[in-house]
């Protein structure tokens, strides 16, 4: 692994002209035993994440925990403020008049869960990250327009520059390029 990590090569990238070819190529790459693969498309292609074997359930948990934190924080804030720090009698209501605390707690729940969703998504995706080796791929600026790319990374145990290149060529791409770090 040490040797691979120092390699100046990031991976081999194949370019396709439509999402269906990319999806098929990704499925075949995975069947061929490659594991460190990624696919790039200008819009979400359904089934592509499964095709490259990507599975990650962290995000929903982050959002859920952030939301629960928001609920607890909202109630705790109001109970502390109105019942502990500065208890005062308003129209003979109990100090912890919880139904009146629901709206604020609801809003804090939504607020924290939304931040959880956005920050969690960016964090798990490793963004913001201004530069990434995949941007060295020729014509990669089209990955946000109308071209579809499949990358087998050099850290993959099966990665062998010649055999992997031959394999990618067999998938019928428009181009295959060696991408350096």
């Amino acid at each position: 692994m040490e040797r691979v990590a120092e390699s100046p090569i990031y991976g081999l990238v194949a370019e396709f002209s439509d999402p269906e070819s990319l999806l098929q190529a990704a499925e075949r790459t995975r069947e061929a035993g490659y594991r460190r693969i990624d696919a790039y498309s200008p819009f979400p292609v359904h089934g592509l994440a499964e095709a490259i074997g990507f599975k990650d359930n962290w995000l929903p948990w982050i959002i859920f925990l952030a939301g629960v934190t928001g609920t607890i924080a909202g109630f705790a804030l109001q109970i502390y403020a109105l019942a502990i720090d500065y208890p005062h009698n308003v129209g003979g209501r109990p100090l912890i008049s919880w139904p009146a605390f629901v709206p604020v707690s609801f809003e804090t729940t939504i607020l924290l869960a939304s931040f959880g969703a956005v920050i969690g998504m960016l964090g798990l995706n490793g963004l913001p990250r201004p530069h990434h080796p995949i941007f060295n791929t020729p014509r990669f600026e089209l990955a946000s327009q109308d071209r579809f790319f499949l990358c087998i990374e050099a850290t993959d145990p099966l990665f062998d520059i010649e055999r992997t290149e031959q394999f990618l060529e067999s998938l019928g791409p428009d181009a295959v390029s060696i991408v350096e770090r």
């Binding site: 990624d38 979400p44 994440a49 990507f54 990650d56 959002i63 913001p128 530069h131």
Partner: peptide
């Protein structure tokens, strides 16, 4: 922020977007 359209990113992106 360095968005590159990776399938992994899209998957999490869609989860986040739908949850929002």
């Amino acid at each position: 922020m360095g968005w590159r359209g990776s399938a992994q990113h899209w998957a999490r992106y869609e989860t986040a977007y739908l949850t929002l």
